[in-house]
């Protein structure tokens, strides 16, 4: 059974729907990448999964349970986590406090998880007492991912993790994402650097005007001449 399955999801912010029937399915071992032109509903899909906008039709099934329109404070304990594209750290709080906030819904001891995150992003251990607002863009992205991992999610949603980073850091972040996935967390991410991201994606989705246009593994999509021509810039 798939970890999460979106069936014909339609939804928006109250006006005309932005999602016009999105279908997706992710397994526990997958890295899913959503690509597509601006306004295709990529980020909106993630927000729909995370209950941040209204789903009017269709269903989102996570671990066998329908979760459409459930709010984040219910979804986080179920094993979903979301890293927004912008403003994704608490700038006035220390790195460690940021991580603690990620564990807000947990009632058990989360010290081991903090250590696990520090092992994954060693630079954060050095900066644990520093306010997150003082870190560099790449380090902030690690804090944001670390915060999201603190709830021990089975699915991590990432909204353009490489946005605004210099090319060197883009690769580094992608490496970190693969590392997180190897640790047993399924990933579903939206990415502008489509070619680079699809290269390591086990599931790729090309969205346009709020609908699936192409679906396949990452390499399959890169190899598809039509996808390459229309969505990957030739």
């Amino acid at each position: 059974m798939a970890l999460i399955e979106l069936k014909n999801v339609i939804g928006g912010y109250g006006g005309a729907p932005i999602l016009n029937g999105v279908n997706m399915s992710i397994e526990q071992s997958d890295i899913g990448v959503i690509v597509g032109p601006n306004g295709a509903g990529k980020s909106t899909t993630l927000k729909a999964i995370f209950g941040l906008l209204k789903v009017t039709e269709g269903s989102i099934v996570f671990q066998g349970e329908e979760i459409q329109n459930a709010l984040p404070d219910r979804l986080v304990p179920k094993g979903l986590s979301f890293v927004p594209q912008e403003k994704n750290v608490f700038t006035s709080m220390s790195v460690e406090e940021n991580l603690e906030m990620g564990a807000f819904t947990r009632t058990d001891d989360f010290r081991p998880t903090i250590e696990w995150v520090y092992d994954m992003f060693p630079v954060l251990r050095e900066k644990r007492r520093q306010p997150a607002g003082e870190l560099s863009g790449g380090q902030r992205q690690m804090v944001a991912m670390g915060r999201a991992l603190m709830s021990k999610p089975s699915l991590l949603l990432l909204d353009e993790p490489s946005a605004g980073l210099s090319p060197r850091y883009v690769l580094e972040i992608f490496e970190q994402i693969v590392k997180v996935n190897k640790a047993g967390v399924a990933i579903l991410m939206v990415e502008q650097n489509a070619r680079q991201a699809l290269a390591f994606a086990s599931r790729g989705f090309v969205l346009a005007t709020g609908k699936n246009r192409f679906t396949g593994t990452g390499p399959e999509l890169i190899a598809d001449p039509e996808v390459a021509k229309s969505f990957l810039g030739g």
Binding site: P72, F82, G102, S151
Partner: peptide
Amino acid sequence: DLAQVSGI
């Protein structure tokens, strides 16, 4: 917004 997303 981030507080909400963190499940607070």
